[in-house]
């Protein structure tokens, strides 16, 4: 809430220039983490994207110097079957947020260029529909992690099963 209040104040101060503000100017990334699987298996990327702007934003892509390939994905369950497909964009409503969370929208990061171990800070650049980009960092977490970690509060997941922390 503190961040939101600050961002709104900042927004008000910059109001004359608001016409030229990009999605990247308005999107705040928090609870960003990667689930690291053994070997060179792809990692899942999760975060909360908060849009402090008055216009909706859309995440359309991401890239990282650590992974050769980063894709937007959506997991879904229908008729007892789990599916994963590519997503063209993930919308972030004006003055709202989008969750990249296990079992729903997420990033799939493939072909690491060097081994990534839990605790590593992985740089990631997000691209929005208006072409603006935002540099951010995701923390690498172990395979059986439930969320971003002890210092980063748990994300709600789309799954009904509750989480007890290690």
């Amino acid at each position: 809430m503190k961040t939101l209040g600050f961002a709104m104040l900042l927004g008000a101060a910059l109001l004359p220039g608001a016409l030229y503000a990009t999605s990247a100017d308005h999107v705040r990334v928090s609870h960003a983490w990667l689930r690291i699987l053994p070997g060179e298996l792809p990692a899942g990327g999760y975060a909360t994207l908060q849009n402090t702007g008055k216009q909706p934003a859309a995440l359309t892509g991401a890239h990282s110097s650590t992974y050769a390939d980063v894709m937007l994905h959506l997991s879904s369950v229908a008729g007892g079957t789990s599916r994963m497909r590519m997503a063209a964009a993930i919308s972030i409503p004006a003055q709202g947020e989008a969750q990249l969370a296990p079992g729903g929208y997420h990033l799939m990061l493939s072909r690491p260029v060097h081994p990534v171990t839990p605790g590593d800070q992985v740089p990631l650049t997000l691209t929005f529909a208006d072409g603006s980009t935002l540099d951010t960092t995701f923390i690498a977490r172990p395979a059986n992690a439930a969320d971003a970690g002890p210092d980063r509060p748990a994300l709600p997941t789309t799954h009904g099963a509750g989480h007890n922390h290690d």
């Binding site: 298996l41 990692a43 994905h73 296990p102």
Partner: peptide
């Protein structure tokens, strides 16, 4: 399957917590 970065690890992580409980 192992190239499943989202749902399979989520399920296995939840099963791990279940086993711990």
């Amino acid at each position: 399957y192992t190239h499943c970065p989202d749902v399979c690890p989520l399920t296995l992580a939840q099963l791990h917590v279940t086993m711990q409980r």
